[in-house]
């Protein structure tokens, strides 16, 4: 058992989704208690975040590791749902701001949030502001995430917030923003509920906003 867990964590750190899926299956087949395994996964995600921050790993490794984590969660997911051990943590609607086509950063956040047990609705790139709101209503989401990678597309996040205000939904859905040219002051100034510098921090932020 211990061996399979170690194999899983190692596969995630190495970014090998085949091996991580294999290890996850071994753990499920052994009918082990998943709770400590999930804790280990969370720990691994934090470690990846630390390494990313320290420049030890970069986008390619981060994406591979996140994919490997999702491969494991795909296998654990149904079991977790069935056992009722761990409930879904919440629903996040994510996309890049209108006019913006840079989606790698957003994709990583989607992956790590999924891996952390959130239901994430990925709206893709160049998403009209109204889409964020409509989808949040439709899926009864908890959080809306807007990513902007150009100074010229940052106002798209403001637009999302304004639409929420117009519809009387401001506060019902928490709004988080991010992207290379953004900063916490700007996030605050437009009335967003949160901002994070990296994908790993986004996981911490979303958990905090959800009161987890």
């Amino acid at each position: 058992m211990e061996e399979s867990i170690n194999k899983l964590i190692e596969a995630i750190m190495d970014g090998d989704d085949e091996v991580s899926a294999e290890a996850a299956q071994e753990i499920v087949d052994a009918k082990a208690d998943l709770k400590p395994v999930i804790d280990k996964l969370t720990e691994a995600m934090r470690e990846l975040g630390r390494q990313f921050e320290a420049m030890e790993i970069f986008l390619p490794e981060m994406i591979l590791s996140a994919d490997a984590m999702v491969a494991a969660m795909d296998i654990f997911g149904p079991i977790l749902a069935e056992s009722g051990d761990i409930q879904k943590k919440g629903t996040v609607v994510m996309g890049t701001a209108p006019g913006d086509m840079h989606e790698i950063g957003k994709n990583i956040v989607v992956t790590v949030l999924t891996a952390d047990g959130f239901d994430v609705v990925d709206l893709g790139k160049n998403v009209p502001a109204i889409e964020f709101v409509n989808k949040a209503v439709e899926t009864n989401a908890d959080i809306i995430g807007v990513s902007a990678l150009m100074t010229t597309t940052m106002p798209g996040a403001t637009e999302v917030i304004n639409i929420l205000k117009d519809k009387g939904l401001y506060g019902k859905y928490k709004v988080i923003v991010g992207g290379a040219p953004t900063n916490p002051d700007w996030a605050k100034s437009i009335g967003a509920d949160g901002w994070s510098e990296s994908a790993a921090e986004a996981v911490v932020l979303v958990n905090k906003l959800m009161g987890n």
Binding site: F58, P60, I104
Partner: peptide, 16 residues
């Protein structure tokens, strides 16, 4: 390029 379905894959690959 951003509209190419394999853009992200190629971009990430080309970073090494």
């Amino acid at each position: 390029l951003a509209d190419c379905p394999n853009f992200q894959e190629e971009f990430i690959g080309a970073m090494s």
